[in-house]
Amino acid sequence: MALLDVKNLSITFGGLHAVDDFNLSVEEGQLYGLIGPNGAGKTTVFNLLTGVYKPTSGTILLDGRDITGHKSAEINKDGIARTFQNIRLFHQLSVIDNVKAALHGSFKYSTFEAMFHIGRFSSTEKELREKALSILRVFGLDTVSEILSSNLPYGQQRKLEIARAMATEPKLLLLDEPAAGMNPNETAELMETISLIRDKYKITILLIEHDMKLVSGICEYVTVLNFGKVLAEGKTKEVLANPEVIRAYLGDDE
């Protein structure tokens, strides 16, 4: 059974069919790419999967459970975490506090204990800190843990966003254009990081990307989206050689 099974997903904004009859099946452990020209509806698909938008019709199954229409926070608890195309860090919090905020669900003490720093507070905060540091270490961010996240260089901000998503221990990680705005060196480093976390955490990854080198380098399967509809899907190499896909990306030669 597929980990993520999306059937006939559609959403319309007014008269615009932003995503129309979208189907997707991602097996556990896969690194799956979602590609398509600008405005094809890729980010809208992500927003549907993570509950930012409610679909007009269709179902989303995660691990066989129907999660259609769940709210964003619930969907994270169901097991999906994501990053954003335009980086959304907690910019006034330090690097480590960004990750600590994401560990919110795995630790517990009462608000009363929080207000007076008593009871479970100290021991829990100590564990929380160690856990957050261990996550930051995986991404090479432990040395900058105390600086303000908005002061990080761009490439590290992208990494921190992935680290924050990973801290919620998802089954499925959605990456929205992780290499956007990166130079070739940073992209290569990012590819390594993505492969590394997939192998280390045995996690399934679905990513949107424009950088074809990155897609063909790490994605085993891709789905191509154009004007809200699925244009092609299958093994990366075969799909990228498909003349329809090339036309959608490069246009007709007229």
Binding site: S72, N76, F84, L89, L93, D97, K100, Y109, A114, T168
Partner: peptide, 24 residues
């Protein structure tokens, strides 16, 4: 300086991101 406070500040800094990491 506690989990509750960080949750509140994460909402201040970016509500959509806070929801995406499961903060009510």
């Amino acid at each position: 300086d506690s989990m509750d406070g960080r949750a509140v500040m994460s909402i201040r800094d970016n509500r959509i991101a806070a929801e995406s990491i499961g903060i009510p």
